[in-house]
């Protein structure tokens, strides 16, 4: 069925944001400005003419300074944003790790949140039942399962989030700066799990400010600068060039 062995394809992708000078949230303001013809939008081009492929089973890094379009690229790939121009194709299931614990309700207990978050990612209750013990074990939260999550520390929240997001073996895993949370011990555990997924053939896309991490984990890499591709290719070469700049 799969004609090619790409996991993600980006073709001439462009992303514009309309940034109004001031945010107009009220109807009255909007009409006044509209009548005065003062509705100004400043077009901000976050990404411009981005095309690249990510092969199946690749570990792909995205490098760049703040505001270079890394997170926008990830959001486009995971389908949260849709591009202004161009096409994005993804093959297979995607597990986004963009900020762990996004779907948690802090008034609920960890047990309830695990089920809730599972359904946010589109899994059924029965499916979650099977994996519940795994998640608890990995996050080491056995003693706090029935405590409301508002009493958790941020590290604890991140652990549960990571455990849920990685409970399955997705075809594509998106990792955005998340390896920086949690203590040393847990970070190691996360990397181990990601490595295991890589061995299992999962395509991993990593965004990080830590070049060491990218160099260590990735095979290929793209370097974004001001929304354009500055360099793409072997992770080592790109990282070297990035360090020199």
């Amino acid at each position: 069925m799969d004609k090619n062995n790409n996991a993600v394809e980006l073709r001439n992708v462009e992303m514009h944001f309309n940034m109004n000078k001031e945010k107009l949230y009220s109807l009255k303001e909007y009409f006044i400005k509209f009548m005065k013809r003062e509705l100004r939008f400043e077009r901000f081009i976050a990404l411009q003419d981005i095309s690249f492929d990510i092969k199946k089973g690749d570990v792909f890094g995205i490098l760049g300074l703040n505001g270079s379009g890394k997170s926008t690229t990830l959001k486009l790939i995971s389908g949260i944003l849709s591009p202004t121009k161009g096409q994005i194709k993804t093959y297979g299931t995607i597990a986004p790790l963009i900020e762990l614990g996004a779907g948690f309700d802090m008034d609920l207990t960890a047990r309830e949140n695990i089920y809730l978050n599972g359904s946010v990612l589109g899994y059924s209750k029965r499916y979650m039942d099977e994996r519940f013990d795994d998640i608890v074990e990995f996050s080491e939260m056995q003693d706090f399962l029935d405590t409301p999550m508002k009493n958790y520390s941020s590290g604890m929240v991140a652990r549960v989030g990571f455990a849920i997001a990685t409970m399955t073996t997705p075809d594509i895993l998106i990792v955005d700066e998340i390896l920086s949370v949690g203590d040393f011990h847990f970070q190691q555990k996360c990397e181990e799990r990601i490595n295991k997924m890589i061995d299992g053939g999962t395509t991993v896309i990593i965004v990080s400010h830590s070049i060491d991490q990218i160099e260590r984990l990735c095979k290929n890499c793209v370097w974004l600068e001001n929304g354009k591709i500055k360099m793409i290719g072997d992770a080592k070469e790109v990282c070297d060039a990035y360090k020199k700049s």
């Binding site: 309700d105 609920l108 309830e112 809730l116 359904s119 946010v120 589109g122 899994y123 209750k125």
Partner: peptide, 20 residues
């Protein structure tokens, strides 16, 4: 189909929180 469980879970959550 995929997110139907989410629909139910969110409603259940609202009820739990309302009366907790």
């Amino acid at each position: 189909k995929k997110f139907f469980p989410l629909l139910l879970n969110l409603s259940a959550k609202d009820i739990k929180i309302k009366y907790r």
